[in-house]
Amino acid sequence: MSASTLTLIVRPRGRPIKNLPETITVRSDASTSEIFQEIAKASQFSIHRLRVTKGSDGSPINNVGEATVHDTGLRNKSAVDVKDLGPQISWRTVFIVEYLGPLLIHPLMYFGRPIIYGTSAPATQLQKLTLLMCVIHFAKREFETLFVHRFSSATMPISNIYKNSGYYWVLSGFNLAYWSYGPSSPAAKPSNPLFTYLGIALFAIGEICNYSTHVTLKNLRRPGSTERGIPQGLAFNLVTCPNYMFEAIAWIGVALVNWSLSTVIFIIVAVGQMGVWAWKKEKRYRKEFGDKYKRKRYAILPGIW
């Protein structure tokens, strides 16, 4: 098939887009990203702020990948609908900000104990251990955000940074830290050493295995591509998202060290949210890979959920 020049009709969808062109011209063998670039150039919007769908059936057109304009089924005089997604912010930036909160809050509240709680009593070994665990966890999260994670979308709505940061800063930041480092905290009292050692072991196993699964997931996607392979390896035969399972294991380890109700509350909320994400991913895998994918009965916790 010889390449041809196509004229596509551009229609606004939702809120008005200033300077949106009525038509654009692209080659049939051009990457679909050319559609976004032509619309962005005319409207002076970032390509990440635009959602483009086929006018015929509403199916989305990607701004990355190897698909050509012809591959999408678009032909001369075909229509595309363009939606303004609003101000955007990069996923990486959101992750950095949301994890930075607890990473700073825990040391500040720990070392600010004399001011916050009005006590001159030294922190106990369990409180020191809780601090160390939380700092390690969120420092690891920041490292993974910078050097491991590959994101399927470049940006998200800027409003998400407030929602995501609020969750981490309040629930795993202020809430967990305040009830862990005070003189009335269960971590301020002696505990059975066996539970402490078990907590340390679970935390270490959870963090190491969680990192391993994140590396596996990273290697499934080529840089600059949204295409994925079927995840295989450590615990992927047990649940859809073993990274979430190991995350839960690590936090159960923290709970066995500090025995704080705030940690238990955080685990319940976190597992609930991760479980929802895991089931959505399970459905996406089934749809994307079909019979090639071995369906999972449990998304996050073997035998439970």
Results as ranks from 00 to 15, higher is better:
residue 87 P to M: 11
residue 102 P to E: 08
residue 88 Q to G: 02
residue 125 Q to G: 00
residue 111 F to V: 09
residue 126 L to M: 07
residue 123 A to M: 06
residue 84 D to A: 01
residue 66 E to T: 12
residue 105 I to M: 11
residue 53 T to K: 07
residue 117 Y to C: 06
residue 106 H to A: 10
residue 85 L to Y: 05
residue 78 S to N: 01
residue 96 I to A: 15
residue 99 Y to G: 12
residue 66 E to P: 01
residue 87 P to A: 08
residue 87 P to G: 04
residue 85 L to H: 01
residue 87 P to I: 04
residue 57 D to G: 00
residue 78 S to W: 03
residue 86 G to Q: 07
residue 75 R to I: 02
residue 65 G to D: 03
residue 96 I to S: 14
residue 128 K to Q: 14
residue 60 P to Q: 08
residue 61 I to E: 10
residue 106 H to I: 06
residue 126 L to Q: 11
residue 63 N to Q: 13
residue 106 H to L: 07
residue 120 S to C: 05
residue 56 S to D: 14
residue 63 N to E: 13
residue 112 G to F: 05
residue 128 K to N: 15
residue 78 S to D: 09
residue 73 G to Q: 02
residue 120 S to Q: 09
residue 105 I to Q: 11
residue 81 D to L: 02
residue 62 N to R: 10
residue 127 Q to C: 05
residue 109 M to I: 04
residue 102 P to V: 14
residue 110 Y to Q: 08
residue 96 I to G: 10
residue 121 A to M: 11
residue 70 H to D: 14
residue 88 Q to N: 02
residue 76 N to L: 04
residue 58 G to R: 03
residue 101 G to Y: 06
residue 77 K to H: 05
residue 121 A to S: 12
residue 77 K to F: 00
residue 108 L to N: 10
residue 112 G to V: 05
residue 77 K to Y: 01
residue 93 T to S: 14
residue 60 P to I: 02
residue 110 Y to P: 07
residue 106 H to E: 03
residue 80 V to W: 05
residue 87 P to F: 14
residue 59 S to E: 14
residue 116 I to S: 04
residue 92 R to A: 12
residue 118 G to A: 06
residue 88 Q to R: 12
residue 125 Q to L: 15
residue 69 V to L: 06
residue 68 T to I: 03
residue 71 D to M: 01
residue 68 T to A: 06
residue 68 T to F: 01
residue 67 A to I: 05
residue 55 G to L: 14
residue 58 G to L: 07
residue 76 N to K: 00
residue 120 S to N: 06
residue 103 L to I: 10
residue 75 R to A: 00
residue 86 G to C: 09
residue 80 V to I: 07
residue 61 I to P: 02
residue 127 Q to A: 07
residue 117 Y to N: 07
residue 59 S to G: 03
residue 118 G to D: 04
residue 83 K to W: 01
residue 104 L to F: 15
residue 73 G to I: 02
residue 113 R to D: 01
residue 96 I to C: 15
residue 77 K to G: 03
residue 86 G to L: 13
residue 90 S to V: 07
residue 59 S to Q: 13
residue 100 L to G: 15
residue 86 G to I: 13
residue 66 E to L: 11
residue 78 S to I: 07
residue 122 P to D: 11
residue 71 D to V: 00
residue 123 A to L: 05
residue 63 N to W: 11
residue 85 L to A: 05
residue 55 G to P: 00
